[in-house]
Design a protein around this nucleic acid. Structure first.
Lengths: 112, 112
DNA sequence: TATCAATACATAAGAAAATTATGTATATAA
DNA sequence: TTATATACATAATTTTCTTATGTATTGATA
């Protein structure tokens, strides 16, 4: 797990996308899912994750409910309707970002 | 020109790559080049650019010399040997970043 | 000739988003 | 009983950006 400046501003987009695909998730579950999908390369730190979740909730993109499992509290998050729209918007933005970066760095994928 | 959090941490990489391709450039020239290549979508602000250039110089990746053209001072930057290695390293990192982001966001380009 | 846009540098104040360091608490395996 | 995994959270600090200024020259325009 290298020092990844947390995918530089993409954390909100990653969270929103995961919740679009998985309907409902809790914080710890998100860290594990990201670790799994990235084959151990990306470790979300709690100091980044939880404030990000709280902000997305405060902005009206996520709603929460808690559930107790094995005496441990889980705080689940799911997309609101507004959050659903936000995912689309953020993904478009992310794609544009990647395109611009690849152009500037001459990293365009092979065949095009 | 939208509000781009300056390509989220990629400013140093962009500068280094431009200097690898162009041998020597001055600050204002870099802003214009980025504007041109990005078709007007990315405007480097001076508040981000100059501190970044100064840091890259302080880190030993860039060296400078000045030149006066039409009574205006231009401060040219070029890669040091160490800077040359840094470009390679940063580009590898950028590629890994893009790959991870595309995987996490399901934005993998069509055929693969 | 006054004024504005472009060229060219720079720094300071503030905001955003991360890292790092803590803190609480339970379950489970060694 | 001690360490690791699970599960949340916040505080201090750092990095990196935006926004706002500031200086100064050239060239076009009104």
């Amino acid at each position: 797990m290298s020092t990844n400046p947390l995918l530089k501003g993409s954390l909100q987009t990653i969270i929103l996308k995961l919740l679009e695909d998985n309907d409902q998730m809790y914080g710890y579950e998100i860290t594990q899912k990201v670790k799994e999908v990235s084959e151990g390369e990306i470790m979300l730190t709690e100091g980044a994750l939880y404030p990000a979740l709280h902000k997305l909730e405060a902005d009206g993109f996520l709603e929460t409910f808690t559930q107790v499992v094995d005496n441990r509290v889980r705080k689940y998050y799911r997309l609101t309707e507004q959050g659903g729209k936000e995912v689309t918007s953020k993904l478009t933005e992310a794609q544009a970002f990647i395109d611009q970066l690849q152009t500037l760095l001459n990293l365009k994928p092979a065949t095009k």
